[in-house]
């Protein structure tokens, strides 16, 4: 975030405050014996463009992330899940993601799926995410802001959409090669493809570069 962008933002009205639904699973919440708790690992905050919001991650993602020793959270932005609708477009949704992120105990990894990837990308432009993960991004801004604090960025797209303009533009904007997973954007929450994707994301997060 450049200083000029920040100045402009402080002079535009802040989006209305809403009470956000945030689903959290901590490693210590899991009963499994083999669950590890890694206090140094960055928490993970997920958001999706699907209307279920945080609930979409409840079935598989949060448990799996917590199982890998990370504090796992998902947020419903305005109008999703049980978060009340409020005015404001893309910017307001990004604001909701940032507000959820600052509520986490430590610097968080932002994971955005679908149009949630666009919010996560905007949020990473004003909050120093530990890492940025964009899964099947949709409706991305033409020129996503440069992430502050220069986090590492992962772009994951389904096989079916790997050649799409959106995926290629995003890959180019961040200068990363996309990771492809079996299936398409709709398959990321359940099924074998989803587990494979999650494992790939978690191992990428765990890797030192």
């Amino acid at each position: 975030m450049s200083l000029q962008v920040w100045v402009r933002r402080t002079r535009t009205p802040e989006p209305a405050s809403v009470k956000r639904e945030i689903a959290v699973i901590e490693p210590s919440d899991l009963l499994e014996i083999e669950a590890r708790d890694d206090p140094d690992a960055s928490p993970v905050l997920c958001c999706t463009g699907e209307s279920a919001g945080a609930a979409a991650f409840g079935g598989l993602w949060l448990k799996r992330i917590a199982g890998a020793g990370r504090y796992a959270a998902a947020v419903s932005v305005r109008g999703q899940g049980s978060t009340p609708a409020a005015p404001g477009g893309l910017e307001a949704c990004a604001h909701d993601v940032v507000q959820a992120a600052i509520g986490l105990p430590r610097q968080a990894v932002l994971v955005g799926h679908g149009s949630g990837a666009a919010w996560a990308a905007l949020a990473a432009g004003r909050y120093p995410a530990a890492a940025l993960v964009l899964v099947s991004p949709q409706k991305m801004p033409k020129q996503p802001p440069r992430p502050v604090g220069e986090p590492k960025v992962l772009l994951a797209v389904g096989e079916a959409e790997a050649q799409s303009k959106e995926a290629q533009a995003t890959a180019e904007a961040y200068g990363v090669a996309p990771l492809t997973f079996a299936g398409n954007s709709g398959d990321v929450f359940t099924g074998a493809g989803a587990e494979g994707l999650l494992d790939a994301v978690l191992s990428w997060l765990g890797s030192k570069d």
Partner: peptide, 14 residues
């Protein structure tokens, strides 16, 4: 608040 918070770590908006 909006003029005082740290640019990359805003205060809670409530």
């Amino acid at each position: 608040r909006s003029q005082t918070e740290i640019p990359d770590f805003p205060m809670p908006d409530d």
